Simulated assay, not measured.
Amino acid sequence: MKDIKKTLFATDFSDISATAQEHAVFLRDHLDCELEVVHVFDPDTFNMPTPYYFMPGVETWLDEHIATMKEKGDTALKDLIEKIAPCTGTFLEGKTGESICKHALETDCDMIVMGTHGHTGFNRLIMGSVAEYVVRHAHCSVLTIKPKQGDS
């Protein structure tokens, strides 16, 4: 069995990510491995159908909104890193599943820990597909964490 020397914990700051975080910290503490926390900001989630771009001010509003969301994600990541130290953290931008897999490969991670899905409704569907993508494409083992009973 291969030693786990570096674990990558992917978070979207949802309740299920908090549960996955517990597992990632447990692995770090019990296997004495490095822990890296990543959050991926996917600007494509803010794409609007073409007709909306013809409304005056929409492009400016959208650019400002995206910048604000990126800032919030970066701040949340820094706060989490401080909370669960010792660990490192990386804020990524791009397609979520692809970014997680690429970063795990580039940083030679031995395991990825993540929730099976994030928020509810449409976002839940998207996050579930991210976990599926990572399981199918990651170069290393992936530990997916299901919600606790009663969590959405």
Rank of each mutant, 00 (worst) to 15 (best):
F91M: 14
V135F: 01
A76N: 02
T120P: 04
P43I: 09
Q149N: 13
K72L: 13
H65F: 13
T120E: 09
C109W: 00
T96W: 00
P147H: 06
F9C: 10
G57L: 04
M55P: 00
D32T: 14
T96Y: 00
M69Q: 15
I112C: 02
D108Y: 14
E34Y: 08
E64H: 12
E132Y: 01
T88F: 01
W61E: 04
G94Y: 04
D12M: 05
M127Y: 10
E59F: 00
N123Y: 02
G73H: 03
K78S: 14
F9V: 09
I84N: 05
A76Q: 03
E82A: 11
Q21C: 15
F91W: 05
F122P: 05
H117Q: 11
P49S: 09
L143M: 13
D79S: 09
M55A: 09
E36Y: 00
E71S: 15
T45M: 11
L92G: 14
A104M: 07
G97D: 14
M114P: 13
A131N: 08
T7H: 00
T11P: 11
G89I: 00
S14I: 08
N47F: 06
K102W: 00
I81N: 08
A24I: 04
E132L: 05
F46E: 08
G150W: 10
A104D: 02
Y133H: 15
R28L: 03
A10D: 01
A24L: 07
T90K: 10
D3F: 09
T96N: 06
T120W: 01
K95P: 02
K5V: 03
E22N: 11
S141P: 03
W61M: 11
I145L: 06
F26I: 09
P147N: 04
G57S: 11
L8N: 11
L8C: 13
A20G: 12
D12K: 14
E98S: 13
K6H: 14
L35C: 07
H65I: 00
L62Y: 04
E132N: 15
K2W: 12
E34D: 15
K2Q: 15
V113R: 03
E71M: 15
F54H: 10
F9W: 06
H65A: 11
I4G: 05
E132G: 15
H65P: 03
T75P: 01
T7Q: 06
L27A: 10
G94E: 02
V113P: 01
H117T: 06
L31D: 13
G89A: 02
S129L: 03
K102E: 12
D44R: 08
G118E: 09
D63C: 07
E36R: 05
L8V: 14
N123H: 12
P56T: 10
D110A: 12
I112D: 01
T7F: 02
F122H: 09
L35I: 04
G118V: 09
Y133Q: 13
A10C: 02
V113M: 02
T7S: 11
Q149V: 09
V37D: 00
H139T: 07
